[in-house]
Amino acid sequence: MTQKLALVTGAARGIGLATTRLFLREGWQVAMIDRDVPALEAAAADLQGVETFVCDVSIPDAVDQLFKDVLARFGRIDALVNNAGVADFGPIEETDFARWRRVMETNLDGVFLMTQAAVPALKETKGAIVNIASISGLRASTLRVAYGTSKAGVIHLTKQQAAELGEYGIRANCVCPGPVRTKLAMAVHTPEIIAAYHDAIPLNRYGSEEEIGEVIVFLCSAKASYVTGQVIASDGGFESTGVGLPALRT
């Protein structure tokens, strides 16, 4: 079993699916993880070199069983991509505790649980962890009290992982996507929001899922062998230009 294995959460769609395809292009095998069974099966149907595993990353027992199943099938884990996340936006005064916890349990608790469970296998391969945060974790913006806070937690958790796991040869890095042209984003972003993003982003456009995936796969590769503890905003320069857009305030 010498072929490298990447474990990708939230792999049924979006950045997770794009990253899966890029890993396959580079000759890796991929364990595709998601809790949406129909979407996961549909995403994997035309892919070679993948196995699907159904798991809710916020449930400790489910995560423990997942790693038993993945290691029984592949015998190794070379990279863990913590991509699963919940995007739930709303004003502070409308965010009750139940809503707060729904975001935190997947976006932050899930990253903690998955990484903790992966460490023994990653020690064996001197593997890599890439956590997917957001530019919303790098600076505050409206309607993101739970989401932005969860992603800021992911950023710091990544640095903790790098500091503590480096002695085992395990690297941990964080990717912070900016506005990405997903089907969901295009469905909910009004023409006013789209125009505002284009005006505020130095590259004058949304990113693509594949562009984010390229950064993730690079960080998992030997080409990034001396890169750890880093937070990379893949955002067309958006984070460098300031905070907040009038079109996003309501």
Rank of each mutant, 00 (worst) to 15 (best):
T95F: 02
F97A: 09
F97M: 11
F97I: 09
A98L: 01
R99L: 12
R101T: 10
V103M: 13
V103H: 06
V103E: 06
M104E: 13
T106F: 05
N107A: 03
N107I: 06
L108Q: 06
L108E: 00
L108P: 01
G110K: 13
G110L: 11
V111K: 02
F112H: 10
Q116I: 04
Q116N: 10
A117I: 01
A118S: 14
A118W: 13
A121M: 12
L122M: 12
L122D: 09
L122A: 07
L122Y: 13
T125Y: 08
T125I: 06
G127P: 05
S134A: 07
I135H: 04
I135A: 08
S136Q: 15
L138H: 05
L138Y: 01
R139M: 04
A140P: 00
L143V: 09
L143I: 06
L143W: 06
R144C: 14
V145G: 10
A146V: 05
A146H: 03
A146F: 01
Y147R: 07
Y147E: 10
T149N: 02
T149R: 00
S150C: 01
K151T: 07
K151I: 08
V154F: 00
V154R: 00
V154K: 00
L157V: 01
T158M: 06
K159L: 09
K159T: 14
Q161F: 11
Q161V: 03
A162Q: 14
E164A: 07
E164G: 07
E164I: 02
G166M: 04
E167G: 12
G169Y: 09
G169A: 03
I170A: 06
A172L: 05
N173A: 14
N173F: 08
C174S: 08
V175P: 12
V175L: 15
C176D: 12
G178P: 14
G178T: 10
P179E: 05
V180H: 15
V180S: 09
R181N: 11
T182W: 11
A187G: 13
A187R: 14
T190K: 01
T190N: 11
T190I: 08
E192F: 08
E192M: 11
I194M: 15
I194G: 10
I194H: 10
A195W: 04
